[in-house]
């Protein structure tokens, strides 16, 4: 995968508020600056309610932004959306088709709407493995089949940008893997894939770049490798016979020590060898010394100080919001 430096999606200062039934306002997206480079898979991550779907809906012209600007392939949207919509395929949340029409009928209608050749319907149905069930009513499809039909629908346009909003929700492991393979395959064909998810580990396996948002604000973005590198191996798991004493010794070095059963999790040690050295001096010998693997989930929890879905605003975060070496 090679990034060209061009942006498939770019938003600046995007804001959206919803009015609740009691009249109060809920800010769903607050000043969001999102950049999605052309090419590869871009993960759009954040907990439930963080504003991912709202952002995607604004990009697709389904809901109106209160403030801010959005561009898709350098065209301002929603003003010029009709000009670029042919290059964009999207599945927003659960696929929504006409339940009493067959899969084929649903796709034929969509193909008719964009002037696509009706023969293409059979091709895309075959591509997603739904040719055998194409004549069945959509409402009889499993969730995985519905997702595949939605992907087939997006392929009718042969889009340059595909937007998948929580595509693996409700899918079994085989279905999740299938969707992942589809996304990688599309990226391999030069498409740009924007995939939103609240399951960070899942996206980590497939994304080249990510944007992480919480409470409608961007808290980090960049290449996955760079983001993982920002917190690489600073936590070390230590197995020792006397964890209490060992913990006190390590804390005396100014490091953060947490108990995890009979083991210790040590943050802030510049080098794991220093741990063995300090403990060995006191006659304590480690039986395990493992750098804790850093994943997106732990990076996210670190960035948001583990406060869960709400999290704190990004400007309070000591590491800032962009990963080192970010190219987006």
């Amino acid at each position: 995968m090679a990034f060209t430096g061009e942006l498939a999606i770019s938003t600046r200062g995007l804001r959206k508020t919803y009015r609740r039934l009691n009249g109060s306002k809920h800010v769903a997206v607050e000043g969001l600056d999102l950049d999605v480079p052309v090419g590869g898979v871009h993960g759009f991550l954040g907990p439930n309610g963080s504003g991912k779907t709202t952002t995607i809906r604004m990009l697709l012209g389904l809901i109106r932004a209160d403030q801010g600007t959005m561009r898709v392939f350098d065209q301002p949207v929603p003003a010029r959306l009709p000009d670029v919509v042919g290059r964009v395929g999207a599945i927003v949340e659960q696929p929504k088709f006409f339940p009493n029409f067959s899969g084929r009928r649903n796709l034929l209608l969509l193909a008719g709407a964009i002037g696509a050749d009706s023969r293409l319907v059979e091709v895309v149905l075959g591509d997603v493995g739904l040719a055998d069930r194409a004549k069945d009513r959509y409402r009889t499809y499993s969730l995985g089949m519905k997702q595949r039909l939605a992907i087939a629908a997006t392929l009718l346009k042969d889009p340059d940008l595909l937007i998948f909003d929580e595509p693996t929700n409700g899918l079994d492991p085989a279905g999740i893997r299938e969707i992942r393979d589809v996304m990688r395959g599309l990226a391999g064909r030069g498409k740009t894939v924007l995939v939103s998810s609240h399951i960070l580990a899942e996206v980590e396996q497939v994304a080249d770049t990510v944007s992480i948002i919480a409470r409608g604000r961007m808290i980090a973005d960049g290449r996955v490798s760079d983001l993982l590198g920002t917190g690489a191996a600073r936590t070390v798991r230590v197995g020792v016979a006397v964890p209490g004493t060992a913990g006190s010794l390590l804390e005396a070095q100014g490091w953060t020590v947490r108990r995890d059963g009979h083991q210790l999790l040590v943050d802030g040690a510049p080098d794991p060898a220093r741990i063995t050295e300090i403990l060995a001096r006191q006659g304590l010998f480690v039986d395990e010394l493992t750098p804790v693997k850093v994943d997106l989930e732990s990076v996210f929890l670190e960035l948001t100080a583990g406060q869960g879905p709400g999290t704190r605003p990004p400007d309070e975060h000591p590491h800032g919001r962009r990963a080192a070496g970010s190219d987006s």
Binding site: L60, L62, G89, A90, F97
Partner: peptide, 8 residues
């Protein structure tokens, strides 16, 4: 919603 992503 799906329809409007095809015909905005």
């Amino acid at each position: 919603g799906n329809w409007l992503t095809f015909a905005p």
